[in-house]
Nucleic acid binder design. Structure first.
Length: 164
DNA sequence: GCCAACGTTGGC
DNA sequence: GCCAACGTTGGC
């Protein structure tokens, strides 16, 4: 069966480094992106991500916040197991195995940025005007990033990874 | 710790 | 279907 050719997309995924940081991903190599409980963020993972898409790993609620590294989408979407786990803070009693409500993808480690790119630097860069993450009140934890914006950020962080 | 912005819930 | 109340996110 022929595969549909598909351009690599780029996503920004937020995580509080106290909870799960780029260092944790480096150690683990790969992780299930558990705990997303926002429909729009879920829809991006479930409906739009493809294996091989690039991920900008963003540290939120930290000092400073900003892009810390790069990952890659490593699986198709599948149900988030924590929704079924009564002991989990992410438990959702409305979710059933037959009708799971929350889906996730695996993300694998690519690299830590040699230079962390703080939010303040994103804000003051004219080439990044219009980025979702810079918009006031915007708090989606999974969001698409323009390829052009991603290239600028990777350059700011002096990443080895490249978009192709 | 504050609070603006936003998403969700539930009464009506 | 409206919308007030509430909970959460996340920068500052």
């Amino acid at each position: 069966m022929a595969r549909v050719q598909r351009k690599q997309r780029v996503w920004l995924m937020k995580s509080e480094p106290d909870v799960y940081s780029i260092e944790d991903l480096e150690r683990d190599g790969r992780t299930a992106w558990e705990g997303v409980r926002n429909y729009q963020a879920r829809n991006f993972m479930r409906d739009e991500m493809a294996v091989g898409d690039l991920v900008l790993f963003y540290h939120s609620s930290s000092e400073p916040s900003g892009v810390a590294g790069v990952g890659r989408v490593a699986s198709e979407a599948y149900p988030d197991r924590t929704q079924f786990d009564r002991k989990s803070e992410y438990h959702d009693e409305a979710a059933t195995k037959d009708e799971p409500r929350w889906h996730l993808v695996d993300v694998e480690f690519v690299e830590r940025l040699p230079r962390f790119v703080p939010l303040a630097d994103l804000k003051k860069n004219p080439a990044l005007t219009g980025m979702l993450v810079l918009q006031k009140g915007q708090r989606l934890s999974v969001q698409p990033v323009d390829g052009a914006h991603a290239r600028v950020i990777l350059a700011l962080g002096k990443a080895k990874s490249r978009l192709h």
